[in-house]
Amino acid sequence: MVSQTSQFYRYLDYPAGREERVKELLKLLKEKNIELVSFISKGYRGVVFKGIYKEKTVAVKVSRSDVQKENFLKREYEILKYLSDKLKEENPAPTPFLHNSEFIVMEFIEGKTFKFAMNNFNPYFVIKETLKSCYLLDEVFIKHSEIKGEKHLIFDGKKCRIIDFESAKFSRSPRNLLQFIGYHLIKNEEFLKKLKVRKEDLQKTIELYKKDRKLGFKFILSLC
């Protein structure tokens, strides 16, 4: 590992940047045989690093120093574990490997954003896989809460992966697919034109989806 005083490691205790706290976290990571490789991003609750764990490339999410850490880390791990167990190989979320009160270690998802994929790959395949991933979350009653965010939808070349479940929760009526359609299709004339889909037709299938999820999903797929 590089010097513990580097800016790279100070992100471990963002935004406080306390040296003693950084050393403490580095010690915990070392005990779990986790090596940090690079800093990825910082969010409202957590800071994400790319790392190596058991010869796998992983994402390591550490809580920010200005949030209550244990509750959101535990909740996110439980949701990721539930999705992994429930959806198996169809799971669009990262597979979790371990967690404690300080961090979560999970699969590192590599790929392109939904917008990039729509503009550079087969748009019909990209949209089908993205709709399917959102529908799968609805089917197992997980509300992602931030599907409208561009950075949360990653196309890995085979399917759409969905990341960042720190705001996710169990819900009796999740609307991940409807939120995706509303923000990424209905409001995007360019994509509608590319898919040769009329906004009015999509809105009709949305109403059907609200009444009958399986039938509505079938019709939305046929449209796109």
Rank of each mutant, 00 (worst) to 15 (best):
I127V: 14
L73Y: 06
R45K: 15
K23E: 14
G46S: 15
E110N: 10
E110R: 11
F141A: 04
K30I: 02
K50P: 01
R18N: 15
L83W: 07
I34W: 10
N122Y: 08
E90T: 01
K199M: 03
E89F: 07
S63G: 15
D156L: 02
L25D: 06
K30V: 00
K69F: 02
I52K: 15
G157N: 04
H99T: 14
K210D: 07
E20F: 03
Q179Y: 01
L177N: 03
K54W: 00
L87M: 08
F155H: 05
K128Q: 12
K199C: 03
K196Q: 13
F219M: 12
R213K: 15
Q7E: 15
S133R: 08
P94T: 07
R175H: 11
N120R: 13
K69C: 11
F39I: 01
L12E: 07
M118F: 04
L87R: 02
E76A: 04
M1T: 12
R172T: 05
K128E: 14
S167H: 09
Y135C: 02
L136V: 00
L195G: 03
I52A: 08
K143D: 07
E35T: 13
E107T: 09
L87V: 09
I34N: 03
E89W: 07
K69W: 01
L215S: 11
E189D: 15
I181T: 08
R45C: 04
R213E: 09
H184K: 12
Y11M: 14
M118N: 00
E189V: 08
T205S: 05
L80M: 10
R75M: 09
E31L: 14
G182A: 09
Q7W: 04
M1E: 14
V2I: 13
N91V: 09
K32I: 11
